[in-house]
């Protein structure tokens, strides 16, 4: 018993101060891509050629964070330094168009409307569905429930079934073999409900885009209300997206 108490004392209070204070992210973290159109050499297609998932269009240069695996191959290939990755972890958007980066200032993400905020603003229950995910985005959702992130302090919780959920949080490209189960889970979630797509796979198919065994993300079968990019998505990015949705940031 004394060991138990000593352990509790020594393991300390470990919940991060986020969102009141900014998180400490590793210096090599790759966040929101930055594009400097002035430095982009026309006639050059090096970044788009290097991208494994076709996330980049050139002339004018435009990067789709919903497809991006944040591997940095484009920045490495760019001969003029027009493309680089910042450490900005706030990647989320309410629309697919909101995930496009083209060197202009990105629009601030919209929270839920006043009616939905009244219902969900202080209590949000989510059902997570992995539909072909590789267990990395799933792990980074799971970790939100640990003492470090302590999701419960925001009134957000992952629940065991769709019938007591307010929304679905989907990971994975939605495999053909999970399509029906996902649709049934959605049907079982009472209205009003919403859908959150986490990770490149759930937004665009990720590395599996174009595979006949999957359907290029959740939007092919369900209306998506929030997109949270990444491969896998950093837990801080997920938390930031959820808090912005609830007008808490």
């Amino acid at each position: 018993m004394i060991n138990l108490l000593l352990a509790r004392f020594r393991q300390k209070h470990r919940t991060i101060a986020f969102p009141k204070a900014e998180p400490t992210l590793p210096d090599r973290f790759q966040g929101v891509p930055e594009i400097d159109p002035a430095r982009c050499a026309k006639e050059c297609n090096a970044c788009a050629d290097a991208c494994p998932v076709g996330a980049i269009q050139t002339n004018p240069l435009r990067l789709d964070m919903g497809r991006c695996l944040f591997c940095g191959a484009c920045a490495e290939a760019c001969p003029t330094g027009a493309l680089s990755f910042s450490r900005d972890y706030a990647l989320s958007a309410r629309t697919r168009e909101g995930l496009m980066v083209d060197g202009q200032t990105r629009e601030k993400m919209q929270a839920l409307d006043a009616h939905m905020l009244r219902i969900f603003g202080r209590s949000l229950k989510l059902r997570q569905v992995s539909a072909g995910g590789c267990n990395a985005c799933e792990a980074d959702c799971n970790v939100l429930s640990t003492v470090v992130f302590d999701l419960g302090r925001f009134g957000i919780q992952f629940v065991a079934g769709p019938r007591h959920a307010d929304g679905l949080l989907i990971t994975g490209p939605v495999t053909e073999n999970m399509r029906l189960a996902l649709e049934k889970t959605y049907e079982a979630t009472p209205e009003p409900r919403f859908v959150i797509a986490v990770g490149a796979c759930a937004i665009s198919g990720g590395p599996y885009a174009g595979h006949p065994e999957a359907q290029d993300g959740a939007a092919a079968s369900l209306p998506v209300d929030l997109y949270i990019p990444g491969c896998p998505t950093h837990p801080i990015t997920i938390l930031d997206g959820l808090l912005r949705l609830l007008a808490r940031r």
């Binding site: 073999n177 999970m178 599996y208 595979h211 006949p212």
Partner: peptide, 18 residues
């Protein structure tokens, strides 16, 4: 089988950037 996304099939013919 619910997570089947055709990886071995897609690896055939590689390597490529993916």
């Amino acid at each position: 089988g619910y997570q089947h996304r055709g990886v071995e099939r897609a690896l055939t013919g590689g390597p490529n950037p993916r």
